[in-house]
Simulated scan of single mutants.
Amino acid sequence: MIHRARLLAVAGLLLCGAIGVISSTQTWLTVVLDDSAGRTLDVAGASAIPVLAPLSLAVLALGGALSIVGLVLRYLFGGLTVVIAALLGWLTAQVAFARPTSAVASTVTEATGITGESAVADLVASIDATPWPAATFAIWVALLTVGVFILATGHRWKSGSRRYRTEESVRAAGPTGSRPHDAIDSWDDLSRGEDPTARPLD
Protein backbone atom coordinates (compact mmCIF):
# COMPACT_ATOMS: atom_id res chain seq x y z
CA MET A 1 0.00 0.00 0.00
CA ILE A 2 2.75 2.44 0.99
CA HIS A 3 4.67 2.01 -2.27
CA ARG A 4 1.52 3.22 -4.06
CA ALA A 5 0.80 6.04 -1.62
CA ARG A 6 2.48 8.75 -3.68
CA LEU A 7 0.62 7.66 -6.82
CA LEU A 8 -2.71 7.63 -4.98
CA ALA A 9 -2.08 11.09 -3.49
CA VAL A 10 -1.04 12.61 -6.82
CA ALA A 11 -4.02 11.06 -8.60
CA GLY A 12 -6.37 12.32 -5.88
CA LEU A 13 -5.08 15.87 -6.14
CA LEU A 14 -5.25 15.92 -9.93
CA LEU A 15 -8.77 14.47 -9.96
CA CYS A 16 -10.14 16.87 -7.34
CA GLY A 17 -8.45 19.86 -8.98
CA ALA A 18 -9.75 18.94 -12.43
CA ILE A 19 -13.31 18.50 -11.18
CA GLY A 20 -13.06 21.82 -9.35
CA VAL A 21 -12.02 23.59 -12.56
CA ILE A 22 -14.84 21.94 -14.52
CA SER A 23 -17.33 22.76 -11.77
CA SER A 24 -16.39 26.44 -11.88
CA THR A 25 -17.76 26.65 -15.43
CA GLN A 26 -21.07 24.92 -14.64
CA THR A 27 -24.36 26.41 -13.44
CA TRP A 28 -24.58 26.26 -9.66
CA LEU A 29 -27.59 28.47 -8.97
CA THR A 30 -30.70 29.59 -10.80
CA VAL A 31 -32.06 33.00 -9.81
CA VAL A 32 -35.61 34.20 -10.47
CA LEU A 33 -35.90 37.99 -10.44
CA ASP A 34 -38.85 39.79 -8.90
CA ASP A 35 -39.51 42.03 -11.88
CA SER A 36 -42.26 42.36 -14.43
CA ALA A 37 -40.65 39.80 -16.70
CA GLY A 38 -39.75 37.31 -13.98
CA ARG A 39 -36.39 36.74 -15.58
CA THR A 40 -34.27 33.69 -14.74
CA LEU A 41 -30.50 33.93 -14.47
CA ASP A 42 -27.95 31.14 -14.34
CA VAL A 43 -25.05 31.59 -11.94
CA ALA A 44 -21.83 29.69 -12.67
CA GLY A 45 -19.64 28.27 -9.94
CA ALA A 46 -16.91 30.82 -10.63
CA SER A 47 -19.43 33.63 -10.09
CA ALA A 48 -20.80 32.13 -6.89
CA ILE A 49 -17.29 31.53 -5.51
CA PRO A 50 -14.68 33.73 -7.23
CA VAL A 51 -11.74 31.77 -5.76
CA LEU A 52 -13.09 28.41 -6.98
CA ALA A 53 -11.16 28.27 -10.26
CA PRO A 54 -7.85 29.71 -8.96
CA LEU A 55 -7.73 27.38 -5.97
CA SER A 56 -8.71 24.40 -8.12
CA LEU A 57 -5.80 25.22 -10.42
CA ALA A 58 -3.58 25.44 -7.35
CA VAL A 59 -4.65 21.92 -6.40
CA LEU A 60 -3.70 20.72 -9.89
CA ALA A 61 -0.29 22.36 -9.49
CA LEU A 62 0.20 20.68 -6.12
CA GLY A 63 -0.64 17.33 -7.67
CA GLY A 64 1.89 17.79 -10.45
CA ALA A 65 4.66 18.89 -8.08
CA LEU A 66 3.96 16.28 -5.41
CA SER A 67 5.31 13.54 -7.67
CA ILE A 68 8.88 14.88 -7.44
CA VAL A 69 9.26 16.75 -4.13
CA GLY A 70 11.11 15.59 -1.03
CA LEU A 71 9.96 15.00 2.52
CA VAL A 72 9.70 18.61 3.75
CA LEU A 73 7.68 19.76 0.75
CA ARG A 74 5.40 16.73 1.08
CA TYR A 75 4.36 17.98 4.50
CA LEU A 76 4.02 21.53 3.18
CA PHE A 77 1.87 20.39 0.26
CA GLY A 78 -0.21 18.18 2.54
CA GLY A 79 -0.87 21.12 4.84
CA LEU A 80 -1.77 23.40 1.93
CA THR A 81 -4.13 20.75 0.61
CA VAL A 82 -5.94 20.56 3.94
CA VAL A 83 -6.24 24.36 4.14
CA ILE A 84 -7.52 24.70 0.56
CA ALA A 85 -9.99 21.82 1.03
CA ALA A 86 -11.33 23.31 4.26
CA LEU A 87 -11.73 26.78 2.73
CA LEU A 88 -13.40 25.57 -0.45
CA GLY A 89 -15.55 23.14 1.52
CA TRP A 90 -16.83 25.92 3.77
CA LEU A 91 -17.52 28.30 0.88
CA THR A 92 -19.21 25.59 -1.19
CA ALA A 93 -21.38 24.50 1.73
CA GLN A 94 -22.61 28.07 2.12
CA VAL A 95 -23.70 28.17 -1.51
CA ALA A 96 -25.12 24.65 -1.57
CA PHE A 97 -27.20 24.86 1.60
CA ALA A 98 -27.64 28.52 2.56
CA ARG A 99 -27.76 30.00 -0.97
CA PRO A 100 -26.83 33.54 0.12
CA THR A 101 -27.70 36.53 -2.02
CA SER A 102 -24.01 37.44 -2.14
CA ALA A 103 -23.39 34.34 -4.28
CA VAL A 104 -25.61 35.70 -7.05
CA ALA A 105 -24.99 39.43 -6.61
CA SER A 106 -22.41 39.79 -9.38
CA THR A 107 -24.60 37.97 -11.90
CA VAL A 108 -27.68 40.00 -10.99
CA THR A 109 -25.72 43.25 -11.16
CA GLU A 110 -24.31 42.34 -14.55
CA ALA A 111 -27.78 41.56 -15.89
CA THR A 112 -29.66 44.49 -14.35
CA GLY A 113 -27.11 47.15 -13.48
CA ILE A 114 -28.43 47.25 -9.91
CA THR A 115 -25.74 47.33 -7.22
CA GLY A 116 -25.78 47.07 -3.46
CA GLU A 117 -26.51 43.97 -1.40
CA SER A 118 -29.88 45.16 -0.13
CA ALA A 119 -31.03 46.32 -3.56
CA VAL A 120 -30.04 43.01 -5.12
CA ALA A 121 -31.76 41.09 -2.31
CA ASP A 122 -34.98 43.03 -2.95
CA LEU A 123 -34.82 42.13 -6.63
CA VAL A 124 -34.28 38.38 -6.10
CA ALA A 125 -37.48 36.37 -5.83
CA SER A 126 -35.88 32.93 -5.36
CA ILE A 127 -32.60 31.08 -5.59
CA ASP A 128 -32.46 27.40 -6.51
CA ALA A 129 -29.37 25.22 -6.50
CA THR A 130 -28.40 22.67 -9.15
CA PRO A 131 -26.65 19.40 -8.13
CA TRP A 132 -23.22 20.94 -8.80
CA PRO A 133 -22.67 22.68 -5.43
CA ALA A 134 -23.44 19.52 -3.44
CA ALA A 135 -21.34 17.36 -5.76
CA THR A 136 -18.44 19.79 -5.53
CA PHE A 137 -18.73 19.87 -1.75
CA ALA A 138 -18.22 16.09 -1.78
CA ILE A 139 -15.09 16.61 -3.88
CA TRP A 140 -13.65 18.96 -1.25
CA VAL A 141 -14.34 16.39 1.45
CA ALA A 142 -12.36 13.91 -0.66
CA LEU A 143 -9.59 16.51 -1.11
CA LEU A 144 -9.41 16.99 2.64
CA THR A 145 -8.98 13.24 3.00
CA VAL A 146 -6.14 13.31 0.45
CA GLY A 147 -4.40 16.08 2.39
CA VAL A 148 -4.61 14.13 5.64
CA PHE A 149 -3.38 11.03 3.80
CA ILE A 150 -0.32 12.93 2.54
CA LEU A 151 0.50 14.16 6.04
CA ALA A 152 0.07 10.68 7.51
CA THR A 153 2.07 8.70 4.96
CA GLY A 154 4.46 11.18 3.31
CA HIS A 155 7.39 10.23 5.53
CA ARG A 156 7.18 6.62 4.33
CA TRP A 157 7.24 7.29 0.59
CA LYS A 158 10.23 6.20 -1.40
CA SER A 159 12.34 9.02 -2.74
CA GLY A 160 11.52 9.77 -6.35
CA SER A 161 15.02 11.08 -7.00
CA ARG A 162 16.98 7.85 -6.32
CA ARG A 163 17.35 7.10 -10.02
CA TYR A 164 18.77 10.54 -10.71
CA ARG A 165 21.22 10.36 -7.83
CA THR A 166 22.47 7.03 -9.17
CA GLU A 167 22.96 8.49 -12.63
CA GLU A 168 24.84 11.45 -11.19
CA SER A 169 27.08 9.07 -9.23
CA VAL A 170 27.93 7.16 -12.41
CA ARG A 171 28.71 10.40 -14.25
CA ALA A 172 30.86 11.62 -11.36
CA ALA A 173 32.97 8.47 -11.64
CA GLY A 174 34.26 9.87 -14.95
CA PRO A 175 36.99 7.90 -16.76
CA THR A 176 37.30 5.46 -13.86
CA GLY A 177 33.78 4.13 -14.56
CA SER A 178 33.03 0.72 -16.04
CA ARG A 179 32.95 1.94 -19.68
CA PRO A 180 34.66 4.61 -21.80
CA HIS A 181 33.17 8.04 -22.41
CA ASP A 182 31.02 7.54 -25.53
CA ALA A 183 28.73 9.60 -27.78
CA ILE A 184 25.80 9.30 -25.37
CA ASP A 185 27.89 10.75 -22.56
CA SER A 186 28.98 13.58 -24.86
CA TRP A 187 25.33 14.34 -25.64
CA ASP A 188 24.57 14.43 -21.91
CA ASP A 189 27.48 16.83 -21.41
CA LEU A 190 26.10 19.14 -24.09
CA SER A 191 22.62 19.06 -22.54
CA ARG A 192 24.16 20.25 -19.26
CA GLY A 193 26.04 23.03 -21.02
CA GLU A 194 29.45 21.36 -20.74
CA ASP A 195 32.05 21.07 -23.49
CA PRO A 196 32.70 17.38 -24.17
CA THR A 197 35.83 18.24 -26.19
CA ALA A 198 37.45 19.55 -23.03
CA ARG A 199 37.38 16.03 -21.50
CA PRO A 200 40.68 14.06 -21.80
CA LEU A 201 40.55 11.25 -24.35
CA ASP A 202 40.01 7.78 -22.88
Results as ranks from 00 to 15, higher is better:
2 I>S: 08
3 H>F: 11
4 R>L: 12
7 L>A: 12
8 L>W: 05
10 V>G: 03
11 A>P: 09
12 G>S: 08
16 C>L: 04
16 C>Q: 04
18 A>T: 06
18 A>R: 00
18 A>N: 02
19 I>H: 02
22 I>G: 10
27 T>A: 15
31 V>N: 04
32 V>F: 10
33 L>P: 08
34 D>A: 11
38 G>S: 06
39 R>S: 14
44 A>H: 08
46 A>N: 15
49 I>V: 07
51 V>M: 06
52 L>D: 00
55 L>S: 01
59 V>D: 08
65 A>M: 10
66 L>D: 07
67 S>F: 13
69 V>C: 02
73 L>N: 09
79 G>N: 00
80 L>K: 01
83 V>W: 05
84 I>W: 10
85 A>T: 05
86 A>Y: 06
88 L>A: 02
89 G>S: 08
94 Q>H: 15
96 A>E: 01
101 T>F: 14
102 S>C: 13
104 V>L: 13
105 A>N: 07
106 S>M: 14
107 T>M: 15
107 T>F: 15
108 V>G: 03
109 T>D: 15
112 T>P: 10
113 G>T: 11
116 G>C: 11
119 A>C: 05
120 V>C: 03
122 D>G: 15
125 A>V: 09
130 T>D: 07
130 T>N: 13
136 T>I: 05
139 I>R: 00
139 I>E: 01
142 A>I: 02
143 L>G: 02
143 L>P: 03
145 T>N: 02
146 V>W: 03
147 G>M: 14
150 I>A: 04
151 L>K: 03
152 A>E: 09
155 H>A: 09
155 H>W: 10
156 R>H: 02
156 R>N: 00
158 K>L: 05
160 G>T: 13
161 S>R: 08
161 S>H: 08
161 S>Y: 09
162 R>D: 13
169 S>R: 14
171 R>T: 03
176 T>N: 14
181 H>K: 13
186 S>H: 12
188 D>Y: 12
191 S>F: 05
196 P>C: 10
197 T>Y: 06
